[in-house]
Design a protein around this nucleic acid. Structure first.
Length: 248
DNA sequence: ATGAGTAATGCTTTGTTTCC
DNA sequence: GGAAACAAAGCATTACTCAT
């Protein structure tokens, strides 16, 4: 693999000039610029990310942790992250936590020592849970340390100190229920997201609020807790049908 | 204004030296 | 002999000085 010294030798310039051409950090004459680019092409040179990272403290690598690759929601999210990262000259490393807090923490520990520039995290942590609070504080601190690794959470606003990209889950559930009501349905079942998570609670409250607004009594028997997977959706629907509670 | 050359810097690993 | 301390290497970037 050719390094910056090889390019400098081939082009007959100093390594400083090569660096200035690549990064546009200083004016370099068109003649030398052309020679540097010719050397880069001839030697098939690519900047060594380790060397660049040593000096700049930046690797242009982003870590992404999602609970599951098989959930319908995340492949589209990952695609969007990947496309946006590419546009900005970043690459993405993806990890699966299997909806398991220990695995998620393990990935975070690994990324903390992996010269990553930032983390996008669809966390399974619950800020109401005392045992998760210390972990959430750790995530919030990561962006303020000497080698800052900012963390952005998806779907779950864990801490005011952490940036988050979230959906208004309460309103979304309300919208879904009111759509069904507008079609004339009165008995609406809710296959819920995990209720230990904020997202599950918000969706359930949106569901309840819409029923309340329509003066329809809430029945716990019409709520079944799933885990996002297609299989849990199937099992919940099966259970609801089995227990004989009529819904439309 | 342009470009060359040098040294320092970042962090980790590996090799070498010193000391008990 | 083993542990601890120190030095050097790896690579790209950047600041600085000097030359043309």
């Amino acid at each position: 693999m050719a390094g910056i010294k090889d390019v400098a030798n081939w082009a007959g310039v100093s390594i400083a000039t090569v660096s200035n051409v690549i990064n546009h950090t200083k004016a370099v004459s068109p003649e030398l610029t052309a020679r540097v680019y010719a050397a880069i092409e001839a030697l098939d040179y690519a900047v060594n990310p380790v060397g660049r990272g040593l000096k700049s403290n930046r690797t242009r690598q982003i870590g992404v942790i999602v609970p599951s690759f098989s959930q319908v929601f995340f492949p589209a999210v990952l695609q969007g992250i990947h496309e946006s990262a590419m546009q900005h000259g970043y690459s993405v490393s993806v990890f699966e936590s299997n909806s398991n807090m220990d695995t998620e923490k393990e990935h975070i520990r690994f990324l903390q020592h992996s010269w990553i520039d930032g983390v996008i995290l669809a966390s399974y942590a619950n800020r109401e849970n005392i045992s998760d609070r210390e972990y959430i504080r750790t995530l919030a601190k990561m962006g303020n340390e000497k080698k800052a690794i900012p963390v952005v959470t998806l779907e779950n606003a864990l801490d005011p100190a952490l940036d988050a990209v979230i959906v208004d889950n309460c309103h979304a559930a309300e919208t879904a229920v009111s759509h069904l009501l507008s079609l004339g349905h009165k008995k609406i079942a809710h296959i819920a997201a995990p209720l230990r998570l904020q997202i599950g609670q918000l969706r359930l409250s949106g569901y309840k609020k819409c029923l309340r607004d329509a003066s329809i009594p809430f029945s716990n028997r019409l709520v079944c807790e799933g885990d996002y997977s297609p299989r849990s959706g199937y099992l919940c629907a099966k259970n609801l049908l089995k227990q004989g509670e009529a819904f439309t």
